[in-house]
Simulated scan of single mutants.
Amino acid sequence: MNVRFILLLVWGLFLWSGCEQVGELINPKQLPELDERGIVLSQDQVMPRDTIRASIKATNPLEGPLQYDWHADGGSFLPPFDNDTVFWVAPLSGGLYHLWVIVKNEDGESASPRRQINVISTSEPVVNILEPQDGAYFVTGQSCAVTIQAEHENDVSIVRLLINDHLMGESDNAQNGLYLFNITLDETMVGKTALKAEATANNQLQSKGQDVIYIYVGGILPGENEQ
């Protein structure tokens, strides 16, 4: 293969590419036109294994049928799932999932914006008291920092701290999934004391999870010089 042939080949490819671009300017592609509402869902908040209907309105500026290619990042579609309307079955695991569709004609394809679906988890929040350690020893009047970790697929709405089943505080302000409390131990807590953390999931079920540890609180004995 000589240099002249290579130059002619490169020049031919350049001309072909240029002609194709000019052709697209003269006769622009007529892609499927999707309704501005995008995908319409029968529901956007469901329980695991629930089935919802999803549909898209599209018109073809060309003659002929349209092709529909549906996608989801979880769950499954009931066959057939190549029409403008499909049925999607939610997965067992709760969380946020997305549906979208690609509509094709002879000239190309148009993709819809993604629609979000909230699958409500039936599981309880995962709760752990990280500090103090189970079995830690304190004395009355001492400050006790409590760190609680709480997580859920649908997020956590609120975390409560109870001591011997008495509410000591609640928080909806998480710092990297951690909820921080600070309490002062008093005479009512002397002995074996139960620290309980309760977390409520941010869903319709308001499912709850908890963790319990026990600390020991000692009283301060009066000094000999105290009257």
Rank of each mutant, 00 (worst) to 15 (best):
V3F: 12
F5E: 10
L8I: 12
L8R: 11
W11L: 15
W11T: 06
F14R: 12
W16M: 13
W16H: 06
V22Q: 07
V22C: 14
G23Q: 06
E24P: 15
L25W: 15
L25K: 14
Q30N: 10
E33G: 13
E33F: 07
D35N: 05
I39V: 04
P48T: 01
D50E: 07
I52G: 00
R53Y: 10
A58G: 01
T59H: 12
E63N: 12
P65N: 06
L66S: 04
W70N: 01
D73Q: 03
G74A: 12
G74P: 06
S76Y: 06
P79C: 08
N83E: 15
F87A: 11
P91V: 08
G94S: 04
L96A: 09
S110C: 04
Q116F: 09
I117C: 01
V119W: 05
V119G: 02
S123F: 12
P125L: 05
N128L: 10
P132D: 00
G135R: 00
Y137W: 15
Q142D: 12
S143K: 14
T147I: 12
T147D: 14
I148P: 01
I148D: 01
Q149M: 05
H152G: 07
D155C: 07
V156K: 02
L161T: 02
L162G: 10
H166R: 13
G169Q: 00
E170P: 04
L185P: 01
D186G: 11
E187T: 12
T193G: 01
A194T: 09
A197S: 01
A199C: 02
N203F: 11
L205K: 13
S207L: 13
Q210A: 15
D211E: 10
I213M: 03
Y216A: 07
G218K: 07
G219T: 11
G223Y: 05
